[in-house]
Simulated scan of single mutants.
Amino acid sequence: MFTTYIAGFDAGGGHTLLEGFREWLIVQVNGANNLVWEALVLMLAFPGETGLSSVRVDEERNAVAVGVLFDALERFLADRDGRPGGRNMIQAAYDQWLSQQSWMQP
């Protein structure tokens, strides 16, 4: 996948490109708060597959994952930067998701 390239691009730009992407993805997959964004993209690409070790990525599945990655990035950037208050809306959606988790209850 192109994850290393995108992560490098993000790092070279002061870590602003992907700001909020992980939180946006967590809301999209409705879980996996303990995973990095790369793993969350695989969950988005292959819903219902349990455990990342079971995600076999051959040439065909890699093409699917790459397509999902760029589609997710496009949707994320549109949500974050394409509307006023987008960053705050993404954070609010993530905060709401967090508040609904049983492990976040006192």
Rank of each mutant, 00 (worst) to 15 (best):
M1A: 14
T3C: 07
T3R: 03
T4Y: 08
I6M: 07
A7E: 13
G8V: 04
F9I: 13
D10E: 06
D10S: 10
G12V: 00
G13A: 11
H15D: 06
T16P: 00
L17A: 13
L18Y: 01
L18Q: 00
L18V: 06
E19S: 15
F21D: 01
E23H: 09
W24C: 04
I26Y: 02
Q28R: 15
G31Y: 12
A32K: 05
N33W: 02
N33T: 12
N34A: 08
N34K: 04
L35E: 13
L35R: 12
V36L: 09
W37E: 08
E38V: 12
E38D: 13
A39H: 09
V41L: 04
V41M: 05
L42N: 06
L42G: 03
L42Y: 12
L44I: 07
A45F: 02
A45P: 02
F46S: 03
F46T: 02
F46E: 02
P47N: 08
G48S: 04
G48I: 05
E49R: 01
E49V: 15
T50Y: 08
T50E: 12
S53W: 10
S54K: 14
S54T: 13
V55H: 00
V55G: 00
V55D: 00
V55F: 07
R56M: 12
R56P: 00
D58Y: 08
R61F: 01
R61I: 00
R61D: 01
R61C: 01
N62D: 14
N62P: 00
A63G: 07
V64I: 15
A65V: 04
A65R: 05
A65W: 07
V66A: 12
L69D: 04
D71I: 06
A72G: 06
L73D: 10
L73P: 08
E74M: 08
E74H: 13
E74C: 05
R75P: 01
R75L: 05
R75C: 09
L77I: 14
L77R: 09
A78C: 07
A78T: 12
R80F: 01
R80G: 04
R80P: 03
G82A: 03
G82T: 06
R83P: 00
R83L: 10
P84I: 14
G85E: 04
G85F: 08
G85C: 11
G85P: 07
R87W: 03
N88R: 14
I90D: 03
I90L: 05
A92C: 05
A92I: 05
Y94E: 06
D95C: 08
W97H: 10
W97F: 15
W97T: 02
L98T: 00
S99E: 12
Q100M: 15
Q100S: 15
Q100K: 12
Q101K: 05
Q101I: 07
S102W: 14
W103I: 11
Q105V: 15
Q105Y: 12
P106K: 12
P106T: 10
P106Y: 11
